[in-house]
């Protein structure tokens, strides 16, 4: 179980890093959304193997309970990640409106007229 989630986290981090390093805004955005989820998965996999464990809401004392804390943490992380992603979408949209481009490299190709 640990091996599977470790592999999955690895693949997600690799894919999201690849996407972030692309030029297009949409791919970069997807990359950041994905990397946040990869990090959340790291947190979740610290619950341990859930098989044979009851969900934290089941009040059965004969069955051991799954660790609820990572799930609570992850919930917070998801909400924060969502807020940041929303901000990021707006920033990219504003840059797109100002610069009429969706290529991150094109942004820094020109010098501001008043720059030195």
């Amino acid at each position: 179980m640990f091996l599977v989630s470790a592999l999955l986290v690895g693949i997600l981090f690799a894919v999201s890093t690849y996407l972030i390093l692309q030029g297009s805004f949409v791919r970069i955005l997807f990359g950041f959304i994905l990397i946040a989820n990869a990090a959340n998965l790291v947190l979740l996999s610290m619950t341990g193997d859930p098989r044979g464990r009851a969900a934290p809401v089941v009040l059965d004392e004969t069955v051991p309970m799954a660790d609820p804390l990572p799930q609570a943490l992850i919930l917070t992380a998801i909400v924060i990640g969502f807020a940041v992603a929303a901000y990021f979408v707006f920033l990219l949209y504003r840059i797109f409106l100002d610069w009429k481009t969706d290529d991150a490299l094109a942004l820094f190709a020109k010098k501001k007229p008043t720059d030195l």
Partner: peptide, 30 residues
């Protein structure tokens, strides 16, 4: 309109670091 582009690298590196920070919390818990 010109300067807003500088927010992009700022945001990108900090988002990346924040994702790693979540992972650090995960590792610490593990």
């Amino acid at each position: 309109d010109w300067d807003v582009r500088q927010a992009f690298p700022y945001l990108a590196i900090n988002l990346f670091a924040s994702a790693l920070l979540v992972a650090v919390c995960g590792f610490a818990y593990g």
